[in-house]
C-alpha cells in the first residue's frame, strides 16, 4: 500500500455546543480518490473545511505526510499551499480576468516567475477547453466554465491533494458533465483527492474508496462497487434508495417528454 498522505485521527468539531463531527477518522493514501457521501447537513463540508484549516477542530489531530497540521503550531498558509480546495459556489475573483485568477496563487503565494506560470496556465486551460477564455472576466463565463477555471486555479498550485466540495451542486445539469470529466481526468493522472458529491454515478466512477457520513459519524466505509451495490448498513441502503427513486423519477420524466 502507498504511503498515507492524509490522516484524520479522531477529530470532533461542533458549532456553539452542537456536535457536527464526532470522532471521525480516515486515511487518504497517495494517488487515492476518497469520496464522501451523506445526507445534507451531516458534516461533509465541515470535514473538508477542517482539513484545510478553514474551521478549527475541537479535538483529535490531522496529519499530512505524517506531520501534524492541527494544533497550536500549525502553519495554515503552508498547509493550504499543499492542499487545494474548490467550493460549490463559484468563487473566482470577479475583479481579475481568468489569467489573473490563475496567476495569483502561484506568483504571490509561491513566488514563482510569472512567465513560467503563465505558460503552464495556458496549457492547463487548453486541456479543459478554455484557452480562448484566458482574458475573459469571470462574470462572462458559464457556471461550468467557472468551475473548470477554479479547478485549474487549484491545480496550478501543484497541490499534493485536492479537496472538492460539491463542485457541481450549483450547476445546470448540462454543465455537470464537463466539470466532472476534468475531475475524472485528474483522477486518472493519479491526483490524490477527497471529493464530496451528490452525483452517485460519478462517485462510483471516480472513487477508490467511499465513506458514508451521517450525523457527523462515519457509518460505513468501503470500495465503491461494494458500497453502491451491496451496502452493509441499513442506513446506507436507505440513503442510496433516495437516489434510486430520484433517478427513476428523472427517467420517467424524460420518457414522458419524449
Amino acid at each position: 500500500m502507498a504511503n498515507p498522505l492524509l490522516e484524520v485521527r479522531h477529530i470532533s468539531k461542533g458549532f456553539d455546543g452542537t456536535g457536527v463531527l464526532e470522532d471521525v477518522s480516515l486515511t487518504v493514501h497517495e494517488g487515492e480518490v476518497l469520496v464522501v457521501v451523506g445526507p445534507s447537513g451531516c458534516g461533509k463540508s465541515t470535514l473538508l473545511r477542517c482539513i484545510n484549516g478553514l474551521e478549527r477542530i475541537d479535538s483529535g489531530e490531522i496529519l499530512l505526510r505524517g506531520k501534524p497540521i492541527t494544533g497550536e503550531k500549525r502553519d495554515l498558509v503552508a498547509v493550504r499551499q499543499k492542499v487545494g480546495m474548490v467550493f460549490q459556489s463559484y468563487d473566482l475573483f470577479p475583479h481579475m480576468d481568468v489569467m489573473g485568477n490563475l496567476l495569483l496563487g502561484p506568483t504571490k503565494a509561491l513566488r514563482r516567475p510569472k512567465a513560467e506560470v503563465e505558460a503552464e496556465a495556458m496549457a492547463m486551460l487548453k486541456r479543459v477547453g478554455l484557452e480562448e477564455k484566458a482574458h475573459a472576466l469571470p462574470r462572462t463565463l458559464s457556471g461550468g466554465q467557472k468551475q473548470r477555471v477554479a479547478l485549474v486555479r487549484a491545480m496550478l498550485m501543484k497541490p499534493e491533494m485536492l479537496l472538492l466540495d460539491e463542485i457541481t451542486a450549483a450547476l445546470d445539469p448540462e454543465m455537470v458533465r464537463e466539470v466532472l470529466n476534468v475531475v475524472l481526468d485528474l483522477a486518472k493522472e493519479g491526483m490524490t483527492m477527497a471529493i464530496v458529491t451528490h452525483e452517485m454515478r460519478f462517485a462510483e466512477a471516480v472513487a477508490d474508496r467511499v465513506i458514508f457520513l451521517e450525523g457527523g459519524v462515519i457509518v460505513e466505509e468501503g470500495a465503491p462497487a461494494q458500497f453502491f451495490h451491496h451496502p452493509k448498513t441499513e442506513r446506507a441502503r436507505q440513503f442510496l434508495n433516495t437516489f434510486v427513486y430520484e433517478a427513476a423519477k428523472k427517467q420517467s420524466e424524460n420518457s414522458a417528454d419524449a
Binding site: G53, L54, A78, R80, K82, F93, P94, L104, A150, A154
Partner: peptide, 24 residues
Amino acid sequence: HQTESANALGLTRGQVYRYVIIPQ
C-alpha cells in the same frame, strides 16, 4: 467565500487583503 477561496490558495492574510478584499 472570496476570503475563503483566497485562503485556500495559500495566500497570507496580508495578501488576501491586498489582492482580493481591498481591490473589490
